[in-house]
Each structure stands twice: as C-alpha cells, then as structure tokens.
C-alpha cells in the first residue's frame, strides 16, 4: 500500500504547475466576485473597499438599459445557435451528394478558412465590404436597385449582420464535423437500400440523416451553454453607439461599465449574473449530453 502511493508521487508533481496556474488565474478571480458586493476602489483593494450589500444589483435593476442588454444578448445568441445548427447540416448533406472529390475538397477548404481567422481580421474585412458608400456589398445591391443598407450602423439590421457573419466564420467547422460523421455510416446500409429499390431521397431520409442524428443532438445540446454568449469579440469589434439599442450585449456592457466608466462593482455584479446563469446552462447541457449521447467532457 505504501509503495503504491510512492509511485504516484510523480503524477502529483506533474499536475502541480497546472494546478498552481489554475488556482491563481481562475480560482482567485472567482473569489474576486466579492467586488460585486462592494463599492470597489482599486487603491483600497477587496479587503478595504466599502461593503454595500446588494446595492450594485439594485442599481442595475433601476437602470433602463439593463433588460434591453439582456434581451439583446439572448436574442442574438439564440439566433446564432439555431443558424449555426441548421446551416452546417444542410451544407454537409449537400456536399455528401457531390461525387467529384476535387470539387468537394475545394468547397470544404474554402468554407473552413474563416474559422481560423480572428474577429479582428474578419472585422476589418466586414467593415470594408459592408460600408454603405464604397463597400462591394452595397455596390452590388445598387445594381439590383436596392438602396444602400448600413449593415453595421442601422440598429434594425445590426443583430442580423452579427448572426450572418457569425455563420460565415463558424459554419465550416460544424460542416467538417458532420462530414466526418457521414463517412462513418456503414456503406452496407446504402447497398441494402439500393437493392430494396430506395432512391437517393429515401436513402438520405432513412439512412444518412439518422446516421448523424446523434452528433446533431450532441452539438445542439452543447450549444445550450452559449445562451448568454452573443459573441463578445465580434460585437466589440463591429458595434458602435449607433447600434447600442439592439447590439449592446452583456459582455460589451460589462466592459464599458467596468473598464471605461470604472464602476467596478456594478460591472462585476453583471459578470456574476452571467457566470451563474451560464454555469447552470452548461451543467444542464452536459447532463443532457451524457443522457442522450453518452458524452463526457473529461
């Protein structure tokens, strides 16, 4: 017995650096959540700042745009989740019907590229092509006789611009995941179906689609954890005061209140709300993922 625990010492030593870094940079900030209940002044730190109880939360409830921000976040996030599920399924099913290997690979390569570029790069590109005066998109719409649309400056359009550009960046990833799942379907099933006289359409409905339902379920369930993630890096790069009404989300709101206006307590209170709600959704989604797909994170 004693020998066995001696042997395990190297394992603990290997984990030590990772544990230390995680304690410092993940767990200490969790304790820093007490800032949400203080009138925090950086020079005094968390030990000497004044405690104010729930004052920061009450202040938030009285602020007119708190609920607007919450609504914007959920609205954009849910639209992104739905579009991010449907588009890759359709594209991967269509790609699966393509016989020409070179064409298939080319399409895959092209649609996957934006996934690896940061929102700064894609933002720089979007700001240029979506410009109402010189952007190629509005130039093209002009040819069709459509008035220029201010995709990034009109608050009625902004949320949809975010959803579509998010699909642009990310759908290649899920498409590749689904295509990988499609190649795992037993070819024998198709052969049997052909002998039974099933056409392409019937084979898609009865073999292909059921074949990827488990992975679709898993992706859907895991995306539940993102209901409050409307995409900080994207919106922070692309929004402006013109679109705060519909485009301001929890994360950008926290950044402005905290880092720009230095209302640290209030910003942390909002952050705490987000962390707690997100945590509950992630727990729920992992429970469901385990139940329906046998999936476990670690």
């Amino acid at each position: 017995m004693k020998r066995k625990s001696l042997q395990q010492l190297p394992l603990h030593l290997m984990l030590l650096p990772g544990v230390i870094f995680t304690l410092i940079f993940s767990y200490i900030p969790m304790l820093g959540i007490v800032i949400a209940f203080q009138k925090f002044v950086p020079a005094r730190g968390i030990f000497k700042s004044k405690w104010v109880g729930l004052e920061n939360f009450i202040y938030l409830l009285d602020m007119p745009n708190t609920f607007q921000v919450l609504w914007n976040t959920v609205y954009i996030a849910i639209m992104k989740i739905i579009a991010g599920l449907i588009v890759p399924i359709i594209i991967s099913l269509l790609l699966n019907e393509v016989g020409n290997k070179i064409f298939k690979r080319t399409v895959q390569t092209v649609v996957f590229l934006p996934y690896f570029l940061s929102w700064v790069i894609l933002g720089g590109i979007l700001i240029d092509v979506l410009s109402p005066s010189d952007g190629i998109v509005n130039k093209f719409l002009g040819i069709l006789g459509i008035e220029p649309i201010f995709f990034l400056g009109d608050d009625k359009v902004f949320p949809y611009t975010m959803v579509i550009s998010d699909v642009w960046k990310n759908f290649g990833y899920s498409t590749v995941v689904y295509l990988a799942a499609l190649t795992n379907i037993d070819p024998g099933l198709y052969e049997a179906a052909i002998i039974d006289g099933a056409g392409h359409w019937k084979r898609t409905i009865h073999i292909t689609l059921p074949g990827i339902v488990p992975i679709i379920t898993l992706m859907a369930v895991l995306s539940l954890g993102n209901v409050l993630n409307a995409g900080f890096e994207q919106i922070f790069t692309l929004y402006s005061p013109l679109v705060y009404r519909t485009g301001d989300i929890i994360d950008t709101f926290v950044y402005r209140i905290g880092m720009v206006n230095a209302q640290y307590g209030v910003a942390t209170a909002v952050g705490l709300f987000k962390s707690v709600v997100s945590f509950m959704f992630i727990m729920l989604s992992n429970k469901l993922a385990y139940k329906y797909a046998g999936y476990r994170v670690l």
């Binding site: 544990v19 820093g32 910003a267």
Partner: peptide, 22 residues
C-alpha cells in the same frame, strides 16, 4: 478530483473585472 478541479475552471469564471484586478 483533479479533473473536476480543471473542468470547473472552464465552466465558471470570475469575469473580466476580478481577473483584470488580479
């Protein structure tokens, strides 16, 4: 026990203000 320790660090966070202060 270790894996719970690491997984919890990705599913819950203190938020940007406490991290910035640290």
């Amino acid at each position: 026990a270790y894996s719970v320790f690491f997984v919890f660090s990705i599913i819950f966070s203190g938020g940007i203000i406490p991290t910035y202060m640290l």
